[in-house]
Design a protein around this nucleic acid. Structure first.
Lengths: 138, 138
DNA sequence: ATCACTGTACTATATCACTAATACACCCCT
DNA sequence: AGGGGTGTATTAGTGATATAGTACAGTGAT
């Protein structure tokens, strides 16, 4: 389906793949309980090593995003509520990174705000519908 | 002044330092034209190798954030306008990352919006004043 | 001219991240 | 019991990261 990877991009393969899975889950492309491709199948499709896929799945499991079962497969985990304090701190960090990025790009606060609101609305829309016809992976 | 680094944190020293400088510039802690500590001085203070600091400065120069002059020192560069198309694409990526982060943290869209606006106001405030008494580095 | 400061360049080396190859272990179905 | 699917473990090779030492090169002041 989606997922692609560039071994020469400089950023580690497992990081690329991990980001894509996270994005797919967050955007509703992968729903709770849904099964992910097997380690081998995905490795074959992306022409990478099964261990690389395994590493991705392992890290995502540590982060509570997916769950793996030996002999059965890998599935999107049920979303759990995080600790409030951690949540706040992490969000603050993420927002601060955004501000730094925006500054470096010389984006003025007005367009930053506009684009943010636009993206937020867009995101809520994505989560609402099933989202079959999404163009993420291409 | 600020700047600290943890060799055991897993993330490369030069990445840590680079992020801090970028943040300092973006938040107005370091103003345009201001001189940064010399390669040697900073290396001594952080107990790291001068080459590591040099690498940071070199990469930041490539990104147009600072400028170096042999024999003189290293200075915060004048902010330049980026290409509009690149700017838009990069901002979009940053915003998308933020959305993924927020989803993983189970932050609802309402608080996300609130916190964003709060941070944005805060940031504008930081840039307005000189910002002596900032607690970033601790 | 000399000195004391700046950035820059090379080489060597140790360690660890990343990826790969291969083999092992578990689960379900027939 | 066996086969074919799953995740998991072990080992190893390659390259990036960081350290260290040493040397070079430009700038401004004395």
């Amino acid at each position: 389906m989606w997922y692609y990877v560039d071994p020469h991009s400089g950023v580690p393969i497992y990081v690329q793949l991990k980001e894509q899975v996270k994005k797919a889950v967050a955007s509703g492309l992968l729903k709770e309980g849904e099964q992910l491709p097997s380690v081998r199948e995905l490795a074959l499709r992306l022409t990478i090593n099964p261990n690389t896929v395994y590493k991705v799945y392992q890290e995502l499991e540590r982060e509570g995003i997916i769950e793996t079962a030996r002999g059965l497969g890998t599935f999107v985990a049920l979303k759990k509520q995080k600790d409030a304090a951690l949540q706040e701190a992490a969000l603050d960090r993420a927002l601060e990174n955004l501000m730094v990025e925006a500054y470096q790009l010389s984006v003025d606060s007005k367009t930053l705000k506009e684009q943010f609101l636009k993206k937020l609305a867009n995101w809520k829309e994505r989560l609402r519908k099933g989202d079959e016809d999404n163009d993420m992976g291409n």
